[in-house]
Design a binder for these strands. Structure first.
Lengths: 344, 344
DNA sequence: TACTCCTGCTTAATCGTTTCACCGCTTAAT
DNA sequence: ATTAAGCGGTGAAACGATTAAGCAGGAGTA
């Protein structure tokens, strides 16, 4: 039922080679023959079979691997990146292949296997880790890929990074300008590549303001809201707790907010809180969360564009795109209560 | 550089056919031979080439087409379905191919071409329309597919539907039990397959309660928050406006809530509001939205499972899976103010 | 005239796999 | 006693495309 190149050739009265040449624009064909072929293609509603075609060439597919944790794709931050990725990939004629890594399989192996089996022309690496093994392996194997975040040291994989370092500085300076002097940090897991730049920005902003870096004000946490709750609880239990806290993600900030509520502290008055992401929810929690808006969708778009360049060996010079994040001030951050805090 | 089946065969001292049989589990092979083959595979780090493989057999890929509207993937409801889909697909050894339809291309054509070019073994149809052309075309072409919603009349495509009809009845009965008698409906676009069952459930619940069906209380709307705002404004402008409103989606409900606020009406007291979806935001708006929780992630999982069955021609009898939705009562719905409403 | 070069096409090799047909032999069923 | 089915393999034919090589015939050139 499915038309093949052979049937087209027969109908047009030419060989299959000629049909292929017409369809690919390679080879020389008279206008008249070309037209006969095109007519036959149209009449038979012919569709080149992708599999057969990509045995020789590219597969026109970008790969994205997902950790096996169920529901990961539903997370807003990831969904935003994917969305941008899908849009830009489509624009350039690529499909997107989502591969969830099995529990028994290694993510690095999966990436390699997707590329080696020609299922994908290149890979997008999300959730970059410090010394990410995927980037190392792909770079070593010469497989086109891009990183959503800073590549491991020593590997110059193309990447699209959001400048969280500068954003962290902005966020801390915002809190400083409100009069806060004891500023806490709820740090994302330190194996995430995004973690260190945030800490570094935090530290640098404090130093610039002439404030000491107090390690007891920094708590390494996880990814979930519960982790944020825990971390905030820990910060509050300190001898002299912070009057403002920067959380490494909105998710963590929500948890922290919860912990503050439970401690009968009013967010934005007793303790200021700044998140990281600007999830849709951020504007709707109570009080609305001051947070760093990360341009995730744009990041996704750039990732696709950059990967396309890498695959086509175009623009070889542009290896890294940096996007800046913007602080969105809402009501979870407010002026420090200096005297008032003690009076109460 | 890339190991082929031939090299594996040579190394294991068998024919390539045997290697293929070992790898696919088809055919009979002694344990000893199998082991030799597996050893060779491991040593050469052999990866079957997808393209060559799917020329004959399946491509082990499920296709999902997305409308070209940018950012569609970021919508929570869709992301939830995709998430379930990805999880269940991975469980069964499938990848997921996301294809965004170009502006110049027809979605139905894209579906057909993906299947005909053997890029996918089957397709998942989201956002079902009334008389959905995709389902009709795929059914006619005998291409494996499943519908996320009711298939067109006369087409018995396998489908996973959420019982919104029953859910709408529940929602209306909830409002009735609170004493509301004039209940409005903000209807999703009528070309969406999900629209009619909601209206039907709404109508049925009213009839059962002995109330008349008043067409002026039903407003057909769009998909966005603005559409919901519009629709609510329209309802409020009626001669005798409703005291309670059921919105066809949370998105619409958020817009409606906005309109009520702007009209200085207190949601949950002056006018009760019920949504449809239970997005993450629903619990966090003010007041928290009473809404019908749709099991989107489970729907995604079931879609993948069902499509796998269809592809493998397993369980041919089970063609439709129905999931039920549950009403989550929050504070946007409250008792009707009978006398109070007039006294005010 | 004889040679090369182009033009427009065909023939055939190739890609890496799956799978059908078949091998000689043993064992079970009719 | 005959047939049939299973065993553990092999060999070779697909699968549907791309593309290098070849091949007529006419044109250009020495």
């Amino acid at each position: 039922m499915q038309a093949t190149i052979k049937q087209v050739a027969q109908r047009a009265g030419v060989s299959i080679a000629t049909v292929s040449y017409v369809l690919n624009g390679t080879g020389v064909v008279t206008d008249e023959t070309r037209q006969r072929v095109l007519d036959a293609v149209a009449e038979l509603n012919y569709q080149p079979q992708y599999a057969a075609r990509s045995m020789r060439g590219r597969s026109h597919t970008l790969g994205v691997t997902l950790p096996s944790s169920p529901g990961r794709l539903a997370e807003p931050a990831l969904a935003e990146v994917m969305s941008g990725l899908a849009d830009a990939a489509a624009l350039r004629g690529y499909f997107l292949l989502l591969a969830t890594v099995d529990a028994d399989q290694d993510e690095t192996e999966l990436c390699l296997s997707l590329a080696r089996s020609r299922r994908v022309d290149g890979l997008v690496l999300l959730d970059m880790l410090v010394d990410d093994p995927r980037a190392q392996a792909l770079a070593a194997a010469g497989i086109p890929h891009v990183c959503a975040g800073p590549p491991p040291a020593g590997i110059d994989s193309p990447s699209v990074v959001i400048d969280v370092h500068a954003a962290a500085i902005d966020a801390v300076q915002h809190l400083l300008s409100l009069g806060h002097r004891r500023i806490g940090l709820i740090q994302p897991p330190s194996d995430l590549a995004v973690s260190e730049p945030i800490v570094e920005g935090y530290r640098q902003a404090l130093t610039t303001a002439g404030l000491p870096f107090d390690p007891t004000l920094v708590v390494e946490s996880g990814r979930t809201e519960e982790d944020g709750y825990q971390a905030m609880t820990e910060l509050l239990a300190a001898a002299s707790p912070p009057t403002a806290v920067l959380a490494g993600s909105d998710e963590l900030a929500f948890g922290a907010m919860h912990a503050l509520n439970d401690a009968r502290l009013i967010v934005g008055r007793d303790v200021s809180l700044v998140g990281f992401d600007d999830l849709p929810l951020a504007a709707h929690v109570n009080p609305p969360l001051t947070t760093v808006r990360q341009p995730r969708r744009a990041q996704g778009r750039q990732l696709a564009a950059l990967l396309d360049d890498v695959i086509l060996k175009r623009n070889v010079s542009v290896r890294t795109v940096t996007l800046s994040a913007r602080l969105i001030v809402r009501r979870s951050s407010g002026p420090a209560l200096h005297a008032a805090g003690k009076a109460n």
